[in-house]
Amino acid sequence: MTKMKLPSKLYVAIVLLFLYLPIFMLIVLSFNSANSTSVMQGFSIKWYIELFRDEATLTALYNTLLLAVTSSITATAIGTLASVGIFKMKKGVVKSSIMSVTNIPMMNPEIVTGVSMMLLFVFIGSFLGINGVLGFWTLFIAHVTFCIPYVILNVMPKLRQTDAHLAEAAQDLGCTPAKAFIKVVLPSILPGVIAGLIMSFTLSLDDFIISYFVSGPKFQTLPIRIFSMTKKRVTPDMYALSAIMFVVILVLLILVNVFQKNDEDKKGGARR
């Protein structure tokens, strides 16, 4: 392709500056020696030490990871199975209505999704006479619900690319349908499944709006903890936290990219 011209370079630089200015500010100020979130005075890592001493933040971090791991795995399992099932269905009212319902959590404003699920949980809670239904399980259900569409979105195209006759051939050669699926279909859709899993994991990790409505005081996730802290004056340990998150996300994204690259290279190599 053509080389970037100077005005183009300048434009890209300005937009990137706009996107990264707040993030860099957060990272720089996380090393501030003073208790200020806007004026840099000297270098120190005391806020990082402070962060790891804060019991509530650490618990929230643990909760977030627990929730992200369990809900992304569940969503990936349900979503992958669903893709296989929906893919087999013939075009028609049933298939298109299932697809429309599947897309609702992606299309609906997050606040409406959060509110609607909260109403369901509160309604069931009051029906069963339980006080404080909102907790891990309501968060888990909500996260699985909004992750499933993204798994299907990633797995469906891979199913379309796979040769349907391969599974049939495997069965003709004596595989049971389940074995044919695991041995033949699954490996060919695996990149989509993994992409769906990683996407679900990051979505769950980062979700605030939906979690905010379906969580209770007993089980706080990190974004909710951050929310309650930004209500007051924030101390730089929150900045330290965001700096750590930035590095983790960077590593995750690079890993995903490398993974996809390898996959593409393999495919490109096989075809040529």
């Binding site: 979503g79 099932g85 349908p177």
Partner: peptide
């Protein structure tokens, strides 16, 4: 029969969406 069994794979998702996507909207 096999095709039907494969379609059945979608059932957990269908049940899940019915309870946690459609019913909540009715609740609203």
């Amino acid at each position: 029969k096999q095709a039907f069994k494969q379609k059945l794979c979608a059932s957990p998702h269908i049940v899940w969406s019915a309870i946690f996507v459609v019913v909540p909207l009715i609740m609203v």
